[in-house]
Design a protein around this nucleic acid. Sequence first.
DNA 1: AAGAACTCCAACCGCGGGGAA
DNA 2: GTTCCCCGCGGTTGGAGTTCT
Length: 293
Amino acid sequence: MGRAPCCDKASVKRGPWSPEEDELLRSYVRTHGAVSNWIALPHKAGVNRCGKSCRLRWLNYLRPDIKHGGYTEQEDLVICSLYNSIGSRWSIIASKLPGRTDNDVKNYWNTKLKKKAMAMHNQHHYHHHHGPGRATPIATPPPAPSSYMQPSPASASSAVTTASGDAYSSFGATTAYSPSNQAQTQAHLAHYNNVNAAASAPLAEFPTPAVASSWAINMAFDDMFLPELVGAGEFPSGEDLFGGFGTLLQDSRAPSTLQELSACYFPNAQAEMWADVKPPPPPPGAGLCPSLT
DNA sequence: AAGAACTCCAACCGCGGGGAA
DNA sequence: GTTCCCCGCGGTTGGAGTTCT
């Protein structure tokens, strides 16, 4: 026994919306404010459409704050990282991108971003298997700011620790930070600091969006841990955006969450972007990016 | 120039969750 | 506790537009 249809599909119009229909819906919402009953709306607004269709049209197209197209590299990163972290929870991902809708983000991912990620994944694999001498050149990542790389005593991951080439697996290297690789990490840090000391530009506390973007472009997408790249149907509970970091998240001492991690990568993002990703209260002195605070 | 192939995205569909009765 | 109804979500589709051959 199936579910009763929400409306009489035979008697309502379907397909693309006309400007007149858009205006009817827009003016109704403008007059009456937030819609409490979408099923009743078509009759009240004089639109011969299914209520669900009206809701979708409003949410995805007519809302005044909607942005279409023109995704920035920062938004790409947010989408990739959140997709990696939580999967195809488009409404949640879209909620972190002001002006974007779940449908828009989903379409963007399916039509463009996924291909971009796959292309970079393939490029990385070629580079990995054939060596740098034969590989399609992958641009050298820009220097990572030392503050990125400072491991936290209480919690850290390769996402913010290692500074080697693999360290550019910043969105999901699979090896978590551990005390045993701290020395190596510090060596990498020193290397990066030296490199940057030699450079004219001093290390910024965070990369500018442009630097962050190019950095993201150059990072190993292999390490982004995209589920389709690793053949994972579901995300194991211990795996998340930052690879083995998930296990750290399960550690009650570890205060870090996507919010905090994201804040490391997108320091200029609006605070409310991450507002509903609540970290557990950090113990004193603990934190993923203590040097950044 | 024309048809095929591909890309993009608005819209549809069915399902699950949650609140009200 | 159960049923009903609506909302919101994620997956999928259809078709317009664009690029390729």
